[in-house]
């Protein structure tokens, strides 16, 4: 029994609907500081989101009552989480360590971690990508990328 009710609440659609309701309600708070004409459209959208998410929640719970299987988000949660973390890590590394270094490390790292392990291929691909970015953006267009906050000042 408890297992079943637990399942009902962790269905992805139910969780999403609850998430939408909470976030939209949170955004409604600062809306009260705005003058009414400024608040009209955002408030309408937030209330719309809350109402629609409630409908979604009811629909999904009815499906649960009929014992329909929930939507499956992923078959490999670890790989998905790993991919997200690697991307976030890459962005942070660019910000703090610098774009070129981080990129030169990330391309082979991501490819290696997710199953492409040919050393020559990794080397060539990294070289081509980083080289052409430098050539086009830095050398050609003098566009600068983050140099790394750690080394600044």
């Amino acid at each position: 029994m408890s297992d079943r009710s637990h399942n009902r609440l962790t269905r992805p659609e139910t969780l999403t609907a609850v998430g939408i309701i909470l976030i939209a309600a949170g955004f409604l708070v600062p809306t009260t500081d705005l003058r009414s004409i400024s608040a009209l459209l955002p408030a309408a959208m937030l209330i719309g989101l809350i109402v629609l998410a409630l409908v979604l929640l009811v629909m999904d719970q009815r499906k649960a009552a009929r014992a329909e299987a929930p939507v499956q988000m992923t078959q490999a949660p670890k790989r998905v989480a790993g991919a997200f973390l690697l991307i976030l890590g890459y962005a942070l590394a660019c910000d703090f360590i610098g774009f070129y270094v981080s990129t030169a490390v990330t391309i082979p790292l991501v490819a290696f971690a997710f199953g492409y392990r040919n050393p020559l291929g990794l080397l060539v691909a990294t070289g081509i990508v980083v080289g052409s970015i430098w050539l086009i953006f830095d050398f050609g267009m003098s566009q600068s990328f983050p140099a790394g906050r750690l080394w600044k000042d």
Binding site: T106, I107, V110, A111, A113, L122
Partner: peptide, 24 residues
């Protein structure tokens, strides 16, 4: 190979978005 393609697209995404206003 898919992992390589994925990692290259990640780099391009960062470049494209960063270049709009030049900020992380």
């Amino acid at each position: 190979p898919r992992p390589l393609l994925g990692s290259v697209i990640i780099v391009l995404m960062l470049i494209g978005v960063y270049s709009i206003h030049g900020r992380m």
